[in-house]
Design a protein around this nucleic acid. Structure first.
Lengths: 344, 344
DNA sequence: GTTAGCACTCTAAGTACCCGAGTGCTAATA
DNA sequence: TATTAGCACTCGGGTACTTAGAGTGCTAAC
């Protein structure tokens, strides 16, 4: 168990290191007004804290920096969210002043502002498109042998895909097919679309549409997979380059690579987890992120859908500030997007 | 005027430096089989070439590197495009094996493969969406007070935008409006859309639709500006970090920043210029690119539309190889996209 | 005209050195 | 007994110096 004084010293050490990026020495600390002890006392305490694994030295006679365990303890027990400056709140809320009509636009802008405000990289995940519900479905012929299938969902999201029409097909058949599909598929979630497509529409199509087989096949292909990565928005990808903690070009490359790769997103932004989470250093599953901390928070759209926000920065991240910012944004974003979604 | 020998030495010097990234010395050169002169002779010639501004030294007793003028001369007079390896051709053409149905997909994949093949950053600009022609226009109501406007163009491109409906409006009016718009606007290019919108449809709307004013206004807003940046595709943004020529983090940041900023794209990819162009160092308009070379080439879609391709790399770029690659790709891409567009 | 020879230059790498910030330990102090 | 002053020690980073090597320009010989 840590004593009051140890707690104080640990807290101030972490705070100072977060702010300065330099190892913290006993002299330095003793000069702070909140620390009324002599350097020698601090040295003793720091040695203890190091013994317990909360602090580390970069070399034998250097000041201390927080260890992973130190950050973890700080985040769990010593973190007092710092109230945001009016200026920050204003900037953060400016997104909602813009009268944007689309969810995606709001999320995109939020990502940008978030990265400007934090100087870290932000990743925002929109609500899962696959849970959206088909509102309208249409097929627009383009040429003799190609048409574009368009699916509008209740959220205003539009999926569209070009697919090929078997040569020599009767155009009226395409129209018929579109009608049948519309009758049967409006109200179905994108998730269940391909299932319903085969279960319900195939038999009916058979009866009404000539050569339904080929047509149905290419259409099905087109509708099958929604673009996955369309749903991820980044802000300040280059902010990583601003951090003094990252100097190894190789590591920067790995990190940026991993972040952009769609397949890694679920590892960074655990879909479905509620509330705010902080992962420090090697607590991240991806090895490229072992020098990073990631703070994630979820937000709600309506009652069913959720999205998430992540801030990726160095372990020496300004936790206080980021937590406050994310708290505020997640609330505001939930309110605004729910409002937009339901239609006031 | 340069002598044969000077030409040879200049060429080999540039080639060598492109390959090794190290200043080239007279001894080194004299060992090459294609150079039958003694180091002393080479030194004399190099001194001359330096005097004429084709070569530079990094310090008084270093080997030579090509100057901007040197690169320019090399590119203009000494460049012999290197035939591509079968392997490369195969990889480059693999895009077309994928049976992609959408122009955008093809361009996106090309950007990726291009960056993998070259190890530089590729930027591909699709055909100008604003010249596409409206094929179909529809309005899908979402909630009481919002609807999504969808415009399908002849290329299969789908623009969609959510806009707000004035409260309490009769839904049938929206349908009427959609019908009128469709009748009048199919066949118009996106470019002329807003013009035609006011000239032709406004009066008719007045006659048929109640409260056309408000509805028309928000709709017009929505349709007005196509998303500009949707048309630019990148490959290998991080390849810059691989180049030994770039080590200054600040410069890298600037460069990456400039490239992603949509408003700078026209400076990098001059829209409308035909054929292949090489800009070296300060020949680029953007100061952030003064250490880069950019090779651009245009491609055609159908008879009217064009897109362009750019490769951004260090001045010490493998011009031979890139020129060959771009030549091939631009031709293939033109063929393939024209085919797709016209519908075989 | 070409080249061998040579003195000269400059970088990069290695070594030595010192300064300062920091530590741990011991002994004195409150 | 807990705190602190004092002190010897450590280590990184900066500066100065040296050296090796690659390269140059110039001159004189071929």
């Amino acid at each position: 168990m840590l004593t009051e004084r140890q707690l104080l010293i640990l807290k101030v050490t972490v705070d100072d290191y977060i702010q300065s990026a330099q190892p913290v020495g006993s002299n330095q600390l003793s000069k702070k007004p909140e620390i009324p002890f002599s350097p020698a006392t601090i040295r003793n305490e720091m040695a203890d804290l190091e013994g317990m694994g909360f602090l580390e030295k970069t070399h034998t006679s250097s000041g201390r920096i927080p260890s992973q365990k130190g950050y973890r303890y700080y985040v769990d027990h010593l973190l007092t969210p710092r109230p945001l400056a009016q200026q920050d709140i204003k900037q953060l809320r400016s997104v909602f002043e813009e009268k944007l009509t689309e969810t995606e636009e709001v999320i995109k802008r939020s990502a940008m502002i978030l990265s400007e405000l934090t100087n870290y990289t932000s990743i925002l995940l929109g609500p899962d498109v696959r849970r959206h519900i088909v509102k309208k479905l249409s097929i627009v012929p383009l040429t003799e042998d190609a048409a574009v299938a368009i699916i509008v969902t209740d959220s205003g999201h539009v999926e569209n895909r070009v697919f090929s029409i078997p040569p020599g097909l009767n155009p009226s058949d395409i129209e018929k097919m579109a009608n049948i599909l519309n009758e049967r598929l409006v109200g179905v979630s994108l998730n269940n679309l391909h299932l319903r497509l085969e279960q319900e529409t195939l038999t009916i199509l058979k009866q009404h549409v000539e050569r339904y087989g080929e047509l149905f096949h290419t259409f099905r292909q087109a509708v099958l997979l929604p673009h996955e990565d369309e749903n991820v928005f980044y802000g300040g990808k280059l902010n990583i380059l601003k951090q003094p903690d990252f100097h190894d070009l190789q590591k920067i490359r790995n990190l940026m690579d991993v972040m952009e790769e769609a397949k890694h997103i679920p590892m960074i932004l655990p879909v479905g987890s509620q509330g705010l989470h902080i992962r420090i250093g090697s607590e991240n599953t991806l090895s490229a992120m072992e020098d990073c901390s990631v703070i994630t928070v979820s937000y709600d759209i309506g009652e069913e859908q959720t999205g998430s926000i992540a801030i990726v920065g160095p372990k020496r991240m300004d936790y206080k500030r980021i937590v406050s910012i994310l708290d505020l944004l997640s609330g505001d974003l939930s309110k605004e997007l729910t409002r937009m979604f339901k239609g006031t």
